[in-house]
Nucleic acid binder design. Structure first.
Lengths: 207, 207
DNA sequence: CTTACTGTACCAACCGGACGGTACACCACC
DNA sequence: GGTGGTGTACCGTCCGGTTGGTACAGTAAG
């Protein structure tokens, strides 16, 4: 059905979770959704944990790619702005998704489905996410803008994303747009090249 | 063992989740943790869903109570500030928890454990959370300050809370404090009594 | 005797995963 | 060009363990 069986299985799993919840992520159900047998599924992913690991890693890689797409290098705050745009784009509903260029248009992106599966199944599988966040936080803090503003923007993006992870009502519309543009403004805080150097470098935490 | 068996079961369930993850929330395990038999457990909660419902409702009620504790009425932004303080207090690690006054000091609060259980088990059980957020968002938007700032603060709090739900590294310390006080400053935005009225009231959304 | 509750025994459903096969494409060697 | 061999992709069944939930017998208190 597809060039890459692995990817289509991952897509099927993601769709299954977003349609029926993480609890329904069973090998049988994934196999059915991906139009193959359980044996076939286990040929590609040697265990359920392995499948979830694939989901999580793909999610992180996808978001990284998204950020890179949105990066307009040069000015201070570029990375933070890209993070913001990527987060909005990923969690935005109903709008046209623009993302159809990558991987041949999988339909719905993985969004946060993998996280949900990992949380409920085996929190240890979230390690790639934790590692990604360490990287992201570092990028934010050395983005040429006030790290306080950058961090607030990051946290708010995460809040947006949590919101659709647990299915909260989205922020109502005139407000939502205003919130996003206020956040974007925060990434161009001209002040505070002082404040930036105020913080000791934690580039090298004792891990 | 306790005055209120129900509450002690809830506490046991919460502790179990935070120690071993949501997947390990089984009736047998909860019964063992609460020092009673499965039969006894099912006498108090007629099903697993019922137990999780209890967890979620207690969580929401606890957070509401926390917000009320922190409310210092009078000035604009009071509610938003209370939300911020409650969120910080709930997610803060290691610090003294101050909360020992309520409910006789249960040890660790439920924090987000109930959410994790609900997400993985039956997303429908999150309904009380959704309802609570509708309320909270409304309070934020009519708090006498710029609703854009208020919403950003809320989202960032949610991000903080997501952070410890999935076990990310906390924001490193000099930054964390700065972030919190910047957010608090955002709740006292003297400007924008204009902007407040800029947004049409969505007090009465269609459903 | 009733109410409130506990503990044990048990069951049916479900789930992960192992396993033995199958189909087929490709290559090598005579 | 036929024969044997090998690796890849996939299928479907079976099994043991776990889980949510039920049935029931018991007990302590009033």
């Amino acid at each position: 059905m597809s060039i890459n069986a692995r990817d289509s299985i991952l897509a099927a799993a993601a769709q299954l979770i977003s349609r029926e919840g993480a609890r329904r992520l069973t090998l049988d159900a994934v196999a059915a959704e991906a139009h193959l047998s359980k044996g076939g599924l286990l040929y590609h992913f040697s265990s359920k944990d392995d499948l979830i690991r694939g989901l999580v890693e793909t999610l992180v890689a996808q978001f990284d790619a998204e950020v890179e797409t949105f990066t307009v290098p040069g000015k201070p705050g570029a990375w933070t702005r890209a993070y913001l745009d990527a987060a909005i784009n990923t969690s935005a509903p109903a709008s046209e998704t623009h993302a159809s260029k990558a991987s041949g248009g999988n339909g719905p992106a993985l969004t946060s489905t993998g996280i949900a599966a990992a949380v409920s199944n085996n929190p240890a599988l979230l390690e790639p996410v934790r590692e990604a966040y360490r990287r992201w936080q570092q990028n934010l803090e050395s983005d040429g803008i006030d790290p306080v503003d950058a961090t607030i923007v990051r946290l708010a993006c995460d809040g947006l994303w949590l919101s659709d992870l647990i299915g909260l009502d989205p922020v109502p519309e005139p407000l939502h747009t205003a919130v996003v543009s206020r956040m974007r403004a925060m990434t161009t805080s001209a002040n505070l090249t002082e404040t930036v150097t105020t913080f000791p470098e934690d580039d090298n935490p004792p891990r």
